[in-house]
């Protein structure tokens, strides 16, 4: 594939809860991605996906979401921690695709009101990522005490998150480029 073709790395906001602070974390990561040359991004809010809940899996695949997953070279998943896990609706959305994810990179951003920054939710997401064929990176971003990190309108109050996001994105982009090369050029023996 032409090297000039930009990477596409969408950010999935994995909660539908009203008043969610995770939207500020997702917006920040999306804007940090958008500042980088050679890639395209967009924020995918699962609250805006018209997926039914009376069926599951590929049977409820949303054409627009599937096309974005097909085009993506990597994903960022922003996941708040719900009772030490991730949201059921995030899983519902992710399960609507499968082949679209295979051999693509994923980085996870955890969000919590408490001190652990969504780490327990991230740990629970990792085996799901593996089964979906996604390749996880070893950097996470953890927004602990998120109500202290952003003001009410989403303004960042703690600039120490910027270098952490930078490290996270550098690793994600490296993995995305490497996996794109592999997908397009290295045959399964």
């Amino acid at each position: 594939m032409a090297e000039a073709c930009p990477l596409f790395i969408p950010v999935i906001l994995g909660t539908t809860r009203r008043g969610r602070m995770s939207i500020h974390a997702a917006s920040l990561v999306t804007s940090e991605l958008a500042r980088r040359a050679g890639l395209e991004t967009e924020l995918i809010d699962i609250a805006k996906l018209p997926l039914p809940t009376d069926d599951a899996g590929g049977a409820i695949k949303d054409k627009g979401f599937a096309e974005k997953m097909n085009r993506a070279d990597a994903l960022v998943i922003v996941s708040p921690e719900y009772n030490h896990g991730y949201s059921g609706l995030l899983k519902h959305v992710l399960d609507s695709c499968l082949e679209e994810y295979i051999h693509k990179a994923v980085g996870i951003v955890g969000v919590s009101a408490g001190p652990f920054g969504g780490t327990r939710g991230i740990q629970n997401l990792l085996p799901v990522m593996r089964e979906l064929g996604l390749v996880t990176i070893f950097w996470d971003v953890n927004f602990s005490s998120v109500q202290k990190v952003f003001d009410g309108s989403g303004g960042l109050l703690d600039s120490s998150f910027l270098p952490r996001i930078d490290k996270f994105l550098k690793e994600l982009i490296w993995m995305a480029k490497t996996l794109r090369h592999g997908r397009e050029n290295i045959a399964l023996e």
């Binding site: 082949e99 295979i102 997908r183």
Partner: peptide, 14 residues
């Protein structure tokens, strides 16, 4: 399921 990618345009298929 087989998963394929296009070396020219990057399109994926299965």
């Amino acid at each position: 399921a087989e998963v394929h990618a296009c070396p020219e345009c990057g399109h994926s298929g299965s």
